[in-house]
Amino acid sequence: MPQPDLTDHFTELIRRASTVLPSDVGAAIRAAADHEDEGSVARRVLLSLLENAAAAARESSPICQDTGTLTFHVTHDAGFSRAVLEDQIREAVAEATRRSFLRPNAVNALTGKNSGNNLGTGAPLVFFHDAFGRSEAADTQHSTLSATLLLKGGGSENVSIQYSLPDERLGAGRDYAGVRRCILDAVHRAQGYGCAPGTLGIGIGGDRMTSHMTAKEQLLRRLDDVNPDPDLAAHEKEAVEKLNTLGIGPMGFGGRTTVLGVKIGARHRVPASFFVSIAYMCWAFRRCTMTWKDGTASFES
């Protein structure tokens, strides 16, 4: 059996990720609006975000013009060729750009030339994962695949940050109390620049690369999930509460809603290093998952 052509399904995945605000994000913004004072700028801004999201979904227009960096996480069984999948994804990205679901966003770092179709070196970014255990590898034949796409704009990426502990300026030592100081500092520095209220993906430990990766991977989680690690779950809850007392508010106009969520992951580090990485995601937290099973594609955002 030849490998199925999923190009159109990938195009649909991109369309949905760019134009449909995930239900958990919409619910969090709605709850935040209810929590702001009647008649406040903060409340009005939050309600306008929902109005914008509704118009975007209705018209298949990008929620935000900065359709950002495209990161795909593809989990598949043993029958799929990753090279073929990547070709299909690249074709879908170019098609989605032609259809104005994406802004042309791939710029040559040396010449400044925009490729015009979102394709370039390292663009889009695709991570592959195995969907099978070691014993099943041989007898599975491209029947199941899931692909999650995350769109993250440049404004929020620019306020993302990595700390190396100890940090004397912050008085942050090599323990969770130090991590807490980094989180507070990062959000204060970000002010409204990252399109607050943001969601933080936080990576503790690892090396410089894996610490950032851990932070980014947290953004694949739903806002309404609960961290399976009870300590991290408690830290996430506490961080949201503290950060929302900073008063930065939606767009940095002031208010009770500075972040929508905090998601923390940790990995082992070498004794000499202690990194804390913070991936700031704007309010327009765009992600969508496509599941391909027995010849049918379904989407969830």
Partner: peptide
């Protein structure tokens, strides 16, 4: 200050594109 990410509603307030400068050289976003 416009609201960041209010992109569809703000695009609706654009009635007409009257012209464009440096499109070839800078690309669409720039």
């Amino acid at each position: 200050h416009a609201v960041g990410g209010l992109a569809v509603l703000l695009a609706k307030s654009v009635e007409k594109v009257e012209g464009v400068m440096k499109l070839e050289e800078f690309g669409v976003p720039e």
